[in-house]
Design a binder for these strands. Structure first.
Lengths: 127, 127
DNA sequence: CACCTTTTACTACATTTGTAGTTATTAGTT
DNA sequence: AACTAATAACTACAAATGTAGTAAAAGGTG
């Protein structure tokens, strides 16, 4: 399943707040700092409709007139699908290059670092 | 600068083979295993034209009739621009979650693992 | 120098994406 | 029961994207 950027933004909100309605998603989007402000409700509803058509979410019930949706795909599933392509396009498919970029450029506290080292160790042991 | 997926695929080839012509890129794309086969030359040329219009590459010279191009942006620049959005959409912007996904899902040999641990250590020290 | 092959430049077109308006319906409210 | 605000359903539309065709020009080759 291939979702657009905006569709993914909406899926993120579903994953964090489901089951929920289009209005709820709309509110959440509007509250989101900086990103996209003043998006019309109908715009959000269109995205939600497309997500339903693509099979990423389904109707779960009603809340008054409003349709309550829930997700049908997990974030993990979509991440696994999307990352190889992203890695190839932006890091020549070189995992090491890729992870190195992140370790260097992203915020990680000591706890994170300790955790990731543990992960690396268990990866090594598992082979 | 925002490039499409296909445009990024072509940029990858430029970075690895520049300076080079559209025909050369076309050949390389056709040789690429599995991915997209039988793409028409004109299709590739269109992408190259768009990359030029977007300012991602420029004319560097001629080779017979053919135009030789070279890149104007680095892979690193584009990666730095693209990754925050990718991370947010697919990993809720959580670096730790993100890197963990990679350590778990991507192929890394013992050398890679040792290298990454060193990187994590130097990250820790630098604070 | 005439010709053929390559390559450019331009045009085309269906699909996807971001964005939103319009119309119809209905759940609450008075 | 009538009204109103919310919501769904449908339609619209420009821009971007993937894909390629056509026409024109200009190298190299006989």
């Amino acid at each position: 399943m291939k979702l657009s950027e905006y569709e993914m933004d909406v899926m993120q909100l579903f994953w964090q707040h489901e089951p929920c309605t289009a209005s709820h998603i709309h509110q959440l989007l509007c509250e989101q700092p900086g990103r996209r402000k003043n998006v019309a409700y109908t715009t959000v509803k269109t995205i939600v409709d497309r997500l339903e058509k693509k099979g990423a979410i389904e109707r779960h019930g009603q809340q008054g007139r409003a349709i309550v949706y829930q997700s049908l795909v997990t974030q993990s599933t979509l991440s696994k699908q999307a990352t190889p392509g992203f890695m190839r396009r932006f890091f020549q498919g070189d995992s090491r290059n890729f992870i190195a970029h992140f370790i260097e450029n992203e915020k990680l506290d000591d706890d994170d670092i300790a955790y990731l080292k543990t992960l690396l160790d268990s990866k090594k042991d598992s082979k």
